[in-house]
Design a protein around this nucleic acid. Structure first.
Lengths: 304, 304
DNA sequence: TAATTGGTATGCATATTCGTATGAACTGGA
DNA sequence: TCCAGTTCATACGAATATGCATACCAATTA
């Protein structure tokens, strides 16, 4: 028995709802337009049309800014849910897509993006010219659930169970420095004799120093006089002899201007490297191809 | 900190998703078209466009019927969820819409209330049956700030800068009288010969006589033996041949019993007509709707 | 006060989408 | 086999939505 459904309630322009949502989230029509690849007048008219359709004023036009009305705030929640559903739809659609042509978004850190991905992507492009690759370079982990990326390279095991992940190996990290910098360090028998050593840090969090101090170092803020989260700048500062950096083994060893510091103490840290992907995308031929390709190629850079 | 969202994943045509859903649920494009108030070719194209966008075949065109593919069936679930969200959005919207309670209060003068508003309100009621109109008829300007009215028709530019106003045009005012009354007036070459002419006045203020005297008349209290601020009484008294009245052009010309007096001298006065609105225009679509409607309809009565 | 910046709304030419009309393919029954 | 009744796809003129240019407005800066 077929139930005759009533579609009247959903018979409004869903795209206008998206226009409303993105405008509310981005704060301005202009920003929303840029985010959606449309123009500001179009967004303006779409939002107005939605207001007219619903019989509700969603935004107060106060001065140069749009401010959500109470009604608008109420509806924004529902619009978010609708967008979530749309996102799931999109994910599922990409997962169902069996055509190899299309684009895949890969999220990676700066070092991977700069030193390892170029060759991998070049090789992939040669083998699969139909696949376009977009690389998002970020320190923070991209949100795969929000679909900021299809595939991500990460240094921790993913927790969310709707993600599929493959451990590619382990990243071995050493401290590196220039030959000159290391030679001018005092011969030491105790870590306290290295109190003036300079390490170029990531940020003000004590992540690196904590790890090192656990191994007997006695590091404080004194030892991190240069701080940047941009790792390529860290590298160049190190090459200028400004201090040591924390760097992956395969990259550091291949750079003739870098030398392992305190090699006899062994590597500073071993980090797992995971390749992560949304579960829905497992069935996508295209995403799977890129996933497997990166997994295969990446291993050469890692300890197994 | 503001999280920069990625809207690419939801940047497909949501309406096409609805087209797909309804088509799948209804079984045929024709039925879906009827359900959505569209036509079958439109649905056909929207579904095709979605298939093209996603790179997926949603339906197998087998014979006269569309049959869902496996991918289509998979995606149908997600489309349903999206429609559920859309339904909730719609329900919330209509709830919010009805939550804007109270009627729209319009303030107008007697002449506008008696002669011009009836047709406008009737037409508005036909187009917007949900909007109740309350009309406040007053000579004095209603205080919008105290919300004695939402919308007011006025003859002067509003001073309070937080009110929204729109100039509708200009009211052209003449002196009118009955044919009989005008014919019994003496032929005159000088205003002094009209010292017994009767003009039905508004009140004891000299507003009208001042204006006329500036144009060469020599009027005094003698000429205002009948005074009432009730303009409809003025009109009826005039029609009884009791004297002249000061009356808007479009109203006077349309009344067969009235004739312009001293037409060769030109209109007595031109007054601007402003439509002014309470702050609530910003939050209430209904107020805005009435405002725009009156603004549009009123123009026919005025010089631009 | 004037210029600049960053925002929204509007007029207009254009590109896209839609509806009407029509055609083609399939189903079921005479 | 033919016909009536469906259904989906295509062509084309009309309606609609879009983008560009611009007006306009508020806030900030010189």
């Amino acid at each position: 028995m077929h139930i005759r459904m009533n579609w009247n309630a959903v018979n409004f322009d869903w795209n206008h709802t998206r226009a409303f949502l993105v405008t509310a989230e981005e704060g301005t029509l202009s920003a929303a337009a840029k985010a959606l690849g449309l123009t500001q007048p179009t967004l303006s008219r779409q939002v107005s049309a939605l207001e007219s359709d619903l019989g509700i004023t969603l935004f107060e036009r106060v001065g140069q800014r749009l401010v959500l009305t109470d009604s608008g705030m109420e509806l924004l929640e529902h619009a978010r849910l609708m967008a979530d559903a749309a996102l799931q739809f999109s994910l599922a659609a990409t997962g169902q897509s069996q055509q190899i042509e299309g684009s895949v978004i890969v999220s990676a850190g700066e070092l991977d993006a700069a030193f390892r991905l170029p060759k991998i992507i070049a090789k992939l492009r040669r083998e699969e010219p139909g696949i376009n690759i977009e690389v998002i370079v970020t320190n923070a982990a991209s949100d795969l659930k929000r679909r900021e990326a299809d595939i991500a390279i990460r240094n921790f095991r993913p927790t969310q169970n709707d993600l599929i992940a493959k451990k590619l190996g382990e990243e071995v990290g050493w401290l590196y420095g220039t030959k000159d910098y290391l030679e001018q360090l005092p011969q030491f028998t105790d870590f306290s004799e290295l109190k003036d050593i300079q390490i170029i840090g990531f940020d003000r969090s004590n992540l690196v120093s904590n790890v090192l101090n656990q191994q007997g170092w006695q590091l404080s803020k004194h030892n991190f006089k240069l701080i940047t989260s941009f790792q390529l700048l860290q590298l160049e500062l190190c090459k200028e002899g400004m201090g040591l950096i924390f760097f992956p083994e395969h990259l550091g060893d291949n750079d003739p201007s870098l030398i392992r510091a305190f090699e006899h103490m062994g590597p500073v840290i071993r980090l797992p490297v995971w390749l992560v992907c949304h579960q829905e995308l497992r069935t996508s031929l295209r995403v799977r191809r890129v996933f497997d390709f990166i997994a295969n190629e990446f291993s050469q850079f890692l300890d197994q």
